[in-house]
């Protein structure tokens, strides 16, 4: 296991390095921040001084090396706009996004798993057909439209839930969290559900097909031939087997949920990383964009690693192979 872990971590570092090159070159290619950052009235002297101060006069590879050197010290550059360390800026916004993403994942399992289980066990019932039709909607309706509809209904018409912001927060370890206050929950509910909609559909479909497949397996028939109760057959024999694909996919989806919370954050004015990155792209705040992308890459890599480990905990066959 240790050897396996070390190898995985080494691989991860290589990926991170490769991604840093791609991200850096990619962001460099999308336009010149000088045009946006420096006032058109500035004279030539001022322009050059500003460009030198931002390190934009060096050739690309030198800029990259400087970036890499600083990155190893945990410094991903300063925001052109806020004149704050880019990483700091992102980390300050991270709790809001994490809260949103985990809330969405939690909802998707909480809602998707039981519905998928039901649809898999009773594939021909009316309830299953309704669930499956609903999951198609969840897949195909655009997130921003659903978000606006949610606001229309629950905030404007019914007035049950607030339409924007994080509400009251509590400070822990220097970071702000809203899931610790009732008011924060109220604010979190709608955006989390909005972000979860797609995942709920995904979990429903995954669970349903897993259950249907498992029900045909000999081991389920054998479990029934042993005289076990239907409850035990479903919740131990079937459930433990479908948990493997569901955990894998939900885990891997966490990364994309975080990355794609951009839309939901914009609709609900949720002050997370997604909103920050949209604003930064608008003004070509390069260090923030690069830092954001690096953080996201790091997050994906970490999540994949954790999912792999979880997977081996759930599936005894994988556990053995990695030991060998």
């Amino acid at each position: 296991m240790t050897v396996y872990l070390l190898r995985r971590i080494l691989q991860s570092l290589m990926v991170l390095l490769a991604m840093s090159v791609i991200v850096f070159v990619g962001v460099y290619a999308i336009g010149d921040p000088v045009e946006i950052l420096i006032s058109p009235d500035a004279d030539q002297m001022e322009r050059e001084r500003a460009i030198a101060a931002l390190g934009l006069d060096l050739p690309l590879w030198q800029q990259y090396l400087v970036f890499l050197q600083n990155a190893l010290r945990g410094d991903l550059g300063r925001s052109f706009v806020f004149n704050e360390p880019a990483l700091q800026l992102i980390l300050n916004r991270m709790p809001a996004t994490l809260e949103l993403a985990f809330g969405a994942m939690f909802l998707s399992v909480l809602i998707g798993l039981p519905l998928g289980l039901y649809a898999g066990l009773k594939p021909d019932s009316v309830g299953s057909r309704v669930i499956m039709a609903g999951s198609i909607l969840g897949f195909s309706l655009p997130t921003f439209w659903v978000g606006l509809m949610l606001i229309m209904v629950f905030a404007v018409q019914l007035g049950w839930l607030p339409s924007s912001g994080r509400g009251e927060t509590v400070q822990i370890l220097g970071l702000h969290w809203s899931f610790l206050t009732a008011n924060g929950w109220m604010h979190l509910a709608m955006p989390a559900f909005n972000l979860a909609l797609f995942k709920i559909s995904l979990v429903i479909r995954l669970t349903r097909s897993g259950v249907r497949e498992a029900m045909l397996m000999d081991y389920v028939k054998f479990a029934r031939a042993k005289g076990l109760s239907p409850t035990r057959v479903t919740f131990v024999h079937v459930f433990k087997n479908i948990l493997i694909p569901v955990v894998t996919v939900v885990g891997l989806e966490l990364g994309s949920t975080i990355a794609f919370s951009v839309v939901t954050e914009t609709v609900f004015a949720w002050p997370g990383m997604g909103k920050l990155i949209i604003d930064s792209i608008n003004v070509l705040d390069r260090p923030v964009i690069v830092a954001y992308l690096m953080v996201i890459v790091l997050m994906f890599i970490t999540i994949n690693l954790i999912v792999d480990i979880l997977y081996s905990v759930l599936d005894p066959r994988v556990r053995l192979e990695s030991k060998a």
Partner: peptide, 18 residues
């Protein structure tokens, strides 16, 4: 015939207890 993710003892004991 045996469930791949359950230990043999689980699969036997549950049969006794059923």
């Amino acid at each position: 015939t045996l469930n791949p993710v359950l230990r043999v003892d689980t699969q036997m004991i549950e049969t006794v207890l059923a």
